[in-house]
Nucleic acid binder design. Structure first.
Lengths: 231, 231
DNA sequence: TTAAATAATTGTCGAAAATACAATAATTAA
DNA sequence: TTAATTATTGTATTTTCGACAATTATTTAA
């Protein structure tokens, strides 16, 4: 087997791309940045950065998240890696994509050193992006949709207190199909929700009750029974 | 934000680790190699290699698979990436793990330049491995189990013609629990199988009918209906 | 040749979940 | 007070799940 010089392997760089998903106005949205540097200056892109030599991949993803949002302690999910030799014009850069769910209202995402402008874009209307970011984005969105089916990550996007309709509409948008109200409520019977006395306000119709996700109860339920979240 | 010199980022290498899974004697097994070079000389490890500068990740995974088995055109699944800064003693090496299902009987896996010896080891009995390969292996095995639930990849491990009992036992081993025969057969009613006239031979009891997976029929079924494989 | 043994295959029944659709209750705004 | 709107609950039917029983086909030993 042919072998190139060992040192010639150590000539590549790594980046992580960190997709943020949130939910507002009935749509699941992804955070995009407008690049303020070459290459692909002025293109929309997924926030990302090179990984420092002494940094683990997860650390780098957390750093980017912190830069963008000021948030830490957000659950990050590794998605996939992309390594086409020509994917980056300035050298061999393999990228690892991550995603996280956030509550859009909870913070002001800020443009950072690499970006002029940011924007929340509905995942069904992603524009042309820099590099191979369209491939990365679509792959990751598919993964997100799959995870929404079997893990209660939707509650990381919903406000702390939400109505059952908001909950339902999130899934209607994700699956791109309407769901029956009555049956939806039957389906979530097993999901541990905390009902509040508080009601919706400022609406011009009967206000809906507000609920929260009972995270601790969920955890013990998963551990003690063989319950599996399933939508 | 602090920035190191751009060129200092281009000092890492990456590898792919390529897990092979097969099924024999009622057990799902993984192919391990015994390393014949430093570091971790003589340790069991997952087959893998550094990726060449002009190679895509998938290409590298296919190359390793070809070296080991002579097989190409095998469906490869990307699992996860691992990038702890100290995971490799000789420098920064991020690894991307892949896995594939094969029919163990279909070929003779051969030791290659980096390995003395190979072995098929039941996934429930993985020994101590080189590097962080135990982490990689267990993560990937979990992913395999998840995919077994929703994709018909089990048929890539089963012989071309199999009995329903072999089919069932594969899932019993994966889930580590016995399944009811009658109910199993009801569950797979929707899976497109081709029944052969041929029967099992050389068994000391009533021979079971042999089946094959009807791959093409499966594909059209997925496309035309909203059928989803589910075990 | 026949019976015992073994495993394949099919059937039944009740419980639980999914689906379609209807009815009722609680608010707001005019 | 009432129309409009939406939340919430209910009913009836079909489909799937899970436990278990019954039947059938084949081999081997007597």
């Amino acid at each position: 087997m042919y072998r190139i010089n060992f040192s010639e392997f150590f000539t590549s760089a790594f980046s992580v791309d960190c997709m943020l998903f949130g939910y507002s106005q009935g749509q699941i949205k992804a955070l995009l940045i407008k690049r303020a540097m070459e290459p692909y200056n002025n293109f929309w892109a997924i926030p990302g950065d090179l990984v420092y030599p002494d940094e683990d991949l997860d650390e780098a993803a957390n750093r980017i998240l912190k830069d963008l949002t000021g948030l830490s302690d957000v659950g990050l999910h590794q998605a996939q890696s992309f390594g086409h030799p020509k994917r980056h014009p300035q050298g061999r850069v393999v990228t690892v994509s991550y995603f996280a769910m956030v509550r859009i209202e909870d913070f002001n995402a800020k443009a950072s050193s690499w970006a002029d402008e940011i924007s929340w874009v509905p995942i069904h209307n992603i524009p042309v992006l820099a590099f191979d970011h369209n491939l990365i984005m679509s792959t990751t969105i598919e993964l997100l949709k799959q995870k929404l089916r079997v893990e209660p990550i939707c509650f990381d996007m919903l406000p702390d207190r939400f109505t059952l309709n908001e909950f339902q509409q999130l899934y209607e948008y994700a699956y791109n199909q309407p769901l029956d109200k009555a049956n939806f409520r039957k389906k979530i019977k097993h999901v541990p929700l905390l009902a509040h006395d508080e009601k919706q306000k400022m609406v011009k119709h009967r206000p809906a009750k507000l609920f929260s996700f009972a995270k601790e109860e969920y955890k013990t339920k998963v551990e003690t029974s063989d319950y599996q979240f399933k939508m």
